[in-house]
């Protein structure tokens, strides 16, 4: 199967790879997937508490090229967004941007889950 140029670009030059301090109250962490399924995504956001804007986003992903590209793209989109706007990101937007084939749609679903899970973690830490 051939990958789209955008997938290859994100795979070869992944944006925002790394780790934020998961103990910090301004950081939300989402860990989704399972090793036996072949996909694990960890996506983290750092939120400016006053404005509610996402200042930083980092990821690490165990998975295929499409999974890595989906999470890399997600971190790019998250930076500078408000939490509410971030919650509105739909997996089909990722599918379209990366031109994912049908068998790889689950990678985009996982990225959407990771975003929602990170926001949930941030909100529960801060009683929101």
């Amino acid at each position: 199967m051939a990958y789209s140029e955008k997938v290859i670009d994100h795979f070869k030059n992944p944006r925002n790879v790394g780790t934020l301090d998961k103990e910090s109250s301004s950081v939300g962490t989402g860990l989704v997937g399972a090793p036996e399924c072949g996909d694990v995504m960890r996506l983290q956001i750092e939120v400016d508490k006053e404005s509610g804007m996402i200042k930083d986003a980092k990821f690490k992903t165990f998975g295929c090229g499409s999974a890595i590209a989906s999470s890399s793209l997600a971190t790019e989109w998250l930076k500078g967004k408000s939490i509410d706007d971030a919650l509105a990101i739909d997996n089909m937007e990722i599918v379209e941007e990366l031109a994912l084939p049908p068998v790889k749609i689950h990678c985009s679903v996982l990225a959407e889950d990771a975003i929602k899970s990170a926001i949930t973690d941030y909100k529960s830490k801060n009683g929101l």
Partner: peptide
Amino acid sequence: HMRELSPIWEMFKEGIDL
């Protein structure tokens, strides 16, 4: 390269029982 990107490699290195 892939291990740099892998959250479970990081967890393994931290000694977490996966």
